[in-house]
Amino acid sequence: MLEARLDQAEILKKVVDAIKDLVQDCNFDCNDSGIALQAMDNSHVALVSMNLQADSFAPYRCDRNIALGVNLTSLTKVLRAAQNTDILTLRALDAPDSLNLVFESQDKDRISEYDLKLMDIDQEHLGIPETEYAATIKMPSVEFRRICTDLMALSESVTIEASKDGIKFTCSGDIGNGSVTLRQHTNVENEKENIEIELSEPVALTFSLKYLVNFCKAAGLSNTVTICLSNEVPLLVSYALTSKAGSNLRFYLAPKIGD
C-alpha cells in the first residue's frame, strides 16, 4: 500500500494547478523512491514531468509499484478543500479503485477525508535523454513569467538566443516587435534575485509563447526557475518543489523548426 504524508498541502495543490491546463488525465506513479508523473499535452508539443522524492514526505511508505490514474479536474475539486498549510496524507491500496486524501490543520483541530475515484490510464512513457545543455539560466520565476506574458502580447512565438552577451528573448508580431535581454546579475543582499547564466556554446531556438506562459503557472512553487537550452532539443523549464534535491516540476517544450 501507499501512505505518503506531506507537511504542506500547498505543494500538491500548486503542482496540480500548474499542470491541469496542459494535461487532463495522468498517472501518479508511486514506488519506494517516491511519486512521479509524466504526461504530454494533447498536441504532443509539451511534456510535464514531476518528481516528488520519498524524502519529501514524512512518513513515506510504498510497498509495491502503484499507478494512480487521476483526472486532474476532479483532483482539483478535492484539493480545493485543503488549506495550503494543511498536512496532507495520501493513501491507496496496492490495486486501488480510489485514492484516499486526508487534510489535517496544523493544530490538528480539523480533519477532512476524501476518496477520489481513480481511472485506468494507458499512458506512453517517454525516455528523456540525459542532456548537457549548451545554456543554463537560473533566474527569478516571476521575472521569467513577466517576460513571457509581455512578449505574448505581441507575438505567438519567441526566439531565445544565448550568447556571451546574455540571454535575448525576441518576438515580432503584427503591431511591432520587442526584445528583452538578461545579463548575469548577483544580488548580494537577496540571492533570490540573482540571474545566473552558464553557457558552453551559443544557442538560438524559437518556441510557442502560449506554452511558456502556461509553464509559468508554476511560478508560485519556487522563487527561482531554471531554463536549459541546446540547439535542436526541447527546452527544459524546471521548478524545485522542496529544498530536497531531486523533487521538481519540469516542463519540456519542443522547438519550432525549419524556416
Binding site: 504530454m40 504532443h44 509539451a46 517517454l126 525516455g127 510557442s208 519540456y252 519550432k256
Partner: peptide
C-alpha cells in the same frame, strides 16, 4: 515560417 516540432520526435520510448 517555422513549424511546431513534436516532443515525440525528440524523446522516444524509454
Amino acid at each position: 515560417p517555422k513549424q511546431q516540432g513534436s516532443i515525440t520526435s525528440f524523446f522516444g520510448a524509454p
